[in-house]
Amino acid sequence: MPQFDLPLEQLRSYRTARAAPPGHTEYWQRTLAQSRAAGGSVRYQAVDAGLAVLDAYDVTFSGFGGHDVHAWHLVPRGLGDRLPVVVEFLGYGGGRGLVHERLTWAAHGFAQLVVDSRGQGGIWNTGDTPDPHGSGPATPGLLTRGVEHPYQLYYRRLLTDAALAVDAAAELPGTDPDRIATIGHSQGGAMALAAAALNPRVAATGARAPFLCGIARNLQLTDAVPYGELSAYLALYRDRAEQVLDVLDHVDLTFLTPQIACPTWISVGLTDLICPPSGIFGAINALGQVRPEVRTWPYNGHEAGGPHDEAHLAGWLHQQLPG
């Protein structure tokens, strides 16, 4: 499809007109402190997945509210016992699946932590982590869950899980706690950036077509799911738009990326109707402490660079996490 958003020259300077919600920093500090206080130890056990060159572990760590979150930990054999670790977060609707389904980063010589997404795993891959919180009226999907109040948001819980997954990665066998990267595509990209913003342990972060960037802007540009869930909700709750968008600003990456201090890599498809480019560039241009590497793909949508991005990102990660 043709490009529908701002021209690239304007994207490179685009900034949202919205301001961070009052108390945004304290909101996240309180959320993380409460969840860490409620958490327990990281638990893991070896699993036999039939892998010839990798050791696999079933991991359980404490996420938001001390809730159990599951993950797979994959460690290449014969490369030493202090490997750089890539924490991988997953796209919308998917879970960690089976051990053998996600081996890319371990195949490139990293220890790899594949983090399950709470309450997901029913669209394109299986999951094992429940979300014990309910919500008020919401459209099918995740984006409108808990939009009554910032402390009820589903994505508050999920982004907290992402930040605490980094703590768990630092404790696992075969990993170097000083060389932790976060990566992901779409929702996973949002989680990767949020983890880098919220957890100073992150040494590098990479996001392909990240979700949750410029939520209010995206609502004006697309009705593709997941943002279509929000437009459908507001078509029923006609007088709640500003209230709901103010709540969702608490989990908008535009207001978290200024806290990122590590090397950052982001890829954008310029025909992306699912996560429109201007929303992503608003988050990119809000980065204040680092100058990110940005790759743009003029003829690609939500896949952005796809396997080309993954090949490039593997090399970039080795540069950022040398040893």
Rank of each mutant, 00 (worst) to 15 (best):
V247D: 00
G269D: 04
N285P: 10
D246K: 13
T271H: 14
C262G: 11
F281Y: 14
G288P: 04
V251S: 00
L273W: 15
L253C: 11
S278F: 01
V244Y: 08
G269S: 12
I266G: 02
C275F: 10
G279N: 01
I266C: 02
T257H: 04
A283M: 04
I274H: 12
W265V: 07
D272Q: 12
A286T: 02
L287E: 05
P276V: 03
T257E: 09
W265Q: 12
T264N: 03
V251T: 08
V247C: 03
L253Q: 00
L273F: 15
Q259T: 11
D246E: 14
T254Q: 13
I266M: 09
L245T: 10
D249F: 06
C262L: 10
I274A: 15
L256I: 05
I284W: 11
L270P: 00
I260R: 02
G288V: 08
N285R: 09
V290G: 01
A261E: 15
Q289A: 13
P263F: 11
T254F: 08
I284T: 07
I280L: 12
C275W: 06
T271I: 14
G269H: 07
L248H: 03
V251R: 00
F281Q: 06
A283C: 06
G269N: 13
W265A: 10
A286K: 07
N285T: 08
V251A: 09
I274Y: 11
P258N: 13
V268D: 04
I274E: 07
Q243C: 10
S267Y: 09
I260G: 02
T257D: 05
I260V: 11
L256Y: 12
G288L: 07
L287D: 06
F255G: 00
G288R: 15
V290Y: 05
V244S: 08
L256F: 11
S278V: 03
T257N: 07
I266S: 01
A286L: 12
V247H: 01
F255A: 01
S278C: 14
G269C: 04
V268I: 15
W265M: 13
H250Q: 07
D249P: 08
L273H: 15
T271M: 13
G288T: 13
T257I: 04
D272E: 13
V247M: 01
L245S: 07
L245Q: 09
T257G: 00
H250W: 10
V247S: 01
Q289V: 03
W265N: 10
L256S: 06
F281T: 06
L287T: 06
D249H: 14
T257Q: 06
D246G: 15
I280T: 13
T271C: 15
Q259G: 10
P276D: 09
H250N: 09
I274N: 13
Q243N: 12
Q289G: 09
L273C: 13
C262Y: 13
P276R: 07
D246T: 12
V244P: 00
L253H: 01
H250D: 00
Q243I: 06
D246C: 10
